[in-house]
């Protein structure tokens, strides 16, 4: 759970940095997208690097889901009779929403790939010009896409807030001081990533990027 989670968090950071290129301009953004496909060349042939990364990510996602599912199944088996009085959450809500949050995120990721990678669900679907795809996606008329995107990103934020803290704990973080630091890091990363990801659609929505 922790190891795959860490891989996915690293990916999210890089992905966000890439997204922010949109503020530099259409050419820069498109150039970045194309560059990704040539990364590693001439050592690696065209798009090989990207496929390797996709394979690693797929492995991480599958591993993450597999671990989460087995934990959930174990949890279900460990408490065959439920409480009649629903438990009051005393720890953190972020921790208690990991499983449903994870499902929402998975659905979003599928949509997101169909939208901006394969283009099946994108109104423009011009593979050569991703900038245009993004701008079309978050056009004011398609407010529901932006809304869904926002909700998904917020779920990711919640997921990260507990996930990063939990991963560090699983990897052996063991002091009170470290715990306070890790909670701060988890919250910080979650907020920064949310802000970074949300800046793009809202920039399009408000016309800052067009």
């Amino acid at each position: 759970m922790a190891v795959t989670g860490v891989l996915l968090v690293l990916f999210l950071v890089v992905h966000m940095l890439g997204n922010l290129k949109i503020f530099v301009g259409a050419a820069a953004f498109d150039h970045y997208a194309h560059w990704l496909r040539d990364l590693g060349s001439p050592l690696l042939p065209h798009t090989w690097y990207l496929w390797i990364q996709r394979a690693v990510l797929t492995f991480a996602v599958v591993g993450h889901i597999w671990a989460a599912t087995s934990l959930a199944l174990r949890a279900k088996a460990a408490r065959p009779v439920k409480y009649a009085h629903r438990a009051k959450v005393q720890g953190s809500y972020a921790a208690r929403t990991m499983r449903w949050g994870g499902v929402i995120i998975l659905l979003f990721v599928i949509y997101h790939i169909l939208d901006l990678t394969t283009g099946n669900l994108n109104p423009v679907a011009d593979k050569a010009h991703p900038y245009a795809n993004v701008v079309a996606d978050f056009a004011p008329g398609r407010w529901y896409v932006t809304l869904f995107y926002t909700l998904a990103i917020l779920s990711i934020g919640f997921h990260l807030r507990h996930g990063i803290f939990s991963a560090l704990r699983t990897l052996g973080q063991q002091t009170e001081k470290g715990q306070r630091r890790n909670r701060a890091i988890a919250l910080g990363v979650a907020v920064v990533l949310c802000a970074g990801y949300l800046s793009v659609p809202f920039a399009v929505l408000t016309g800052l990027v067009s």
């Binding site: 087995s70 953190s92 704990r169 052996g172 063991q174 715990q179």
Partner: peptide, 30 residues
């Protein structure tokens, strides 16, 4: 024994009458 796995949710330490801290789980993991 059939106990579930830990997801560091922190409910345990919140109800623990002796206030055993969650950091102990980090020690176990390490």
């Amino acid at each position: 024994a059939g106990f579930g796995g830990c997801t560091n949710a922190g409910e345990c330490t919140a109800v623990c009458p002796k206030g055993i801290p969650l950091t102990t789980i980090g020690r176990l993991n390490r």
